[in-house]
């Protein structure tokens, strides 16, 4: 039982990171209808930049973290301007493929600069575990979860109350109407990529502090799909909940599969098996808006 409680807590922490990455994905999809297959690589880029600043340039961690956020903003702007804007109005497959191409380019740049070895972040938080209901938890896990929750709160408030957030929601709802009300659609597109890059970068830094980073980190981006499909592709709350559920689910399924079926590594696919089931039963997820087609 203790083992499963541990799995549950691990799942929640990992799920928190999935939620963050899924948040970036949903922000982009909502505003620009672009399905971003490079989300995992954005996480990776943030993590490596932060690593480089702290370890190779000896910047204090807090400053390095802030500079990583700045870098993420620039990365988001560059990606949107260079790769995505020329493809506005193209078919789904073109847009999917351009983000896949982008992910290849980012992955290769990271490998060229930093190599393929695993890199370990310096210890920022103390290593002694805290005890929660008798289960030991590393402080970094707790910090990760709190930080994810905090970012979610900030972005929820941003979308609900700030002028820009309302403009983004208006764009997501109807681009033409938004444009005719004086909202700069291009700026909104750029902004949504920036936000996605920033939250992914934060996710990357957290992951780096937990596990260390290597050039395979980008595969995390694939895990986002079960999370967003479960929550609904265009729902922020759905992304948060979906990420947490997927995190917990894959850890528990992994434990169960190992104990009862003797299958190892079921973690990698558990989420996708669930994904297929959801797609068959409830394709628009928990909170997604149904597409209604009229001829």
């Amino acid at each position: 039982m203790h083992y499963y409680l541990q799995l549950l807590i691990n799942g929640l922490v990992v799920g928190g990171i999935y939620s963050l990455v899924a948040l970036g994905f949903v922000v982009i999809y909502k505003a620009t209808q672009v399905v971003n297959f490079a989300q995992g690589e954005l996480v990776m880029a943030g993590a490596y930049v932060c690593f480089s600043l702290t370890v190779q340039f000896h910047v204090p961690f807090l400053w390095a973290f802030l500079m990583t956020l700045g870098f993420s903003v620039l990365l988001g702007l560059a990606v949107e301007r260079l790769a995505l804007r020329p493809l506005i109005g193209e078919s789904t497959i073109s847009v999917i493929m351009v983000t896949i191409g982008l992910s290849s380019v980012l992955k290769s740049l990271v490998q060229l600069v930093w190599g393929t070895q695993i890199k370990v972040f310096p210890q920022v938080l103390p290593a002694e575990p805290l005890f929660l209901a008798g289960v030991p938890i590393a402080p970094v896990y707790l910090a990760a979860f709190v930080l994810s929750a905090l970012l979610f709160a900030v972005f929820s408030l941003f979308f609900k109350y700030s002028r820009l957030g309302v403009a983004m929601r208006a764009t997501a709802f109807d681009q033409q109407a938004a444009q005719s009300m004086g909202i700069g659609i291009k700026n909104i597109f750029a902004l949504s990529w920036c936000i996605a890059c920033v939250v992914s970068g934060v996710g990357g830094v957290i992951l780096g502090n937990i596990n260390g980073i290597n050039s395979q980190l980008g595969y995390l981006g694939l895990k986002v799909f079960p999370a967003v499909i479960l929550g609904g592709l265009d729902s922020l709350a759905g992304a948060a909940l979906g990420g947490l559920i997927v995190g917990v689910l894959e850890n528990l399924c992994d434990g169960l599969a190992k104990d009862f079926l003797g299958l190892s590594g079921f973690k990698e696919v558990a989420a996708f098996v669930v994904l297929v089931l959801i797609l068959m039963i409830k394709p628009y997820g928990l909170f997604g808006s149904r597409e209604i087609e009229r001829v």
Partner: peptide
């Protein structure tokens, strides 16, 4: 790494 990058860039 180069191969992957060139592939992505070409695409």
């Amino acid at each position: 790494a180069l191969r992957e990058g060139v592939f992505g860039l070409t695409l």
